[in-house]
Simulated scan of single mutants.
Amino acid sequence: MAAPTSETTDPKTNAYDVPPVTRAINLLRYIAAGNRCRNTSKAASALGINRTTLIRLLHTLEREQMIESDREGGGYILSYGLLELAANMLSGRNVVRLARPILSRLATEIGLSAHFGVLSGTEVIVLVRETPNVQIISNVHEGSRLPAHAAVMGRIILANMPREEVLALFADHPMSAVTSKTPTSLDDLSTQLDHDAREGLAWSVAFFEEGIGSCAAVVLDHSNTPVGAISVSGPQATFDLGADKRDQIAVAIRAAAKQLSSLMGHAG
């Protein structure tokens, strides 16, 4: 599989290109596509460069730990230096900036208030809130702190964490009852998290606020670690089992969480 060559670039739109950098990037993409450069003459021809330039590029990229020798099959494969760069890029992204337009579309699509929150100790902090053009009756706002064991965003984050971490987190922390449906013991919490994990969503029908229903999906990063959760909330009847809109809510919130996870590097 050939990579784009420097000869195919438009000089009018690439006046500030640095050709050696372009060649190095093309070579990385060529190797990423499964080409090992075992035959340097063939690889040089595919890349549109001479063999000496290819050898120098391979040497430089190997020295910088962008590629490494493939000891099993010969040639070269991508190295962990690229993974380190990717991890730094992902950690530097502003998840709030990325979440806001997704939540805005979600709120408009299903006509419910949408939120993004992150876990902080035993609480969830709401970082983003987007609302549709309808009357909102939920009291959750940006900056709100919610008990993670009771709120849907907290539950779905906890459900995607190693259980021993969750139990250690709440071992010495009293779990107050927000409503009669709130888990107040480690056993009750584990049972609830098992249910949420199987469902892939955390649902609440007046679990947290009287008259309010909600649903949350987890947001994962490139290492499959939860970085937060997206939720929607609205009138309780909308979230009841058998409600006409419940399936639409599930599909929409799964799609929104998947999109934000993808932007955070999650491969799915």
Rank of each mutant, 00 (worst) to 15 (best):
D172E: 14
P132N: 05
S113N: 13
I212N: 07
G211S: 12
S176G: 09
H195R: 15
M89I: 14
A197L: 14
L158G: 02
V140W: 07
A86D: 12
R198I: 09
T179C: 08
T184E: 07
R198T: 11
R93W: 07
G154M: 04
R97H: 14
D188F: 09
V128T: 08
L90W: 10
M175S: 02
R100P: 00
E109W: 05
H173L: 05
S138H: 05
C215E: 09
F207W: 11
S190D: 15
L146I: 03
M161E: 12
G213W: 02
H149L: 00
P147D: 01
S120N: 12
I125W: 02
A99F: 04
S120P: 00
L189V: 05
V205P: 07
L167E: 12
D188A: 15
H115S: 14
L158T: 03
P132K: 05
A171S: 14
L90E: 10
G121W: 05
I156P: 04
A86M: 13
H195Y: 11
H115P: 06
L186P: 04
H115N: 15
W203I: 02
V205K: 09
L186N: 06
V95R: 12
S180N: 11
R97M: 13
I212E: 04
S104K: 14
D172K: 08
P174K: 01
A217L: 07
A86V: 13
L127E: 15
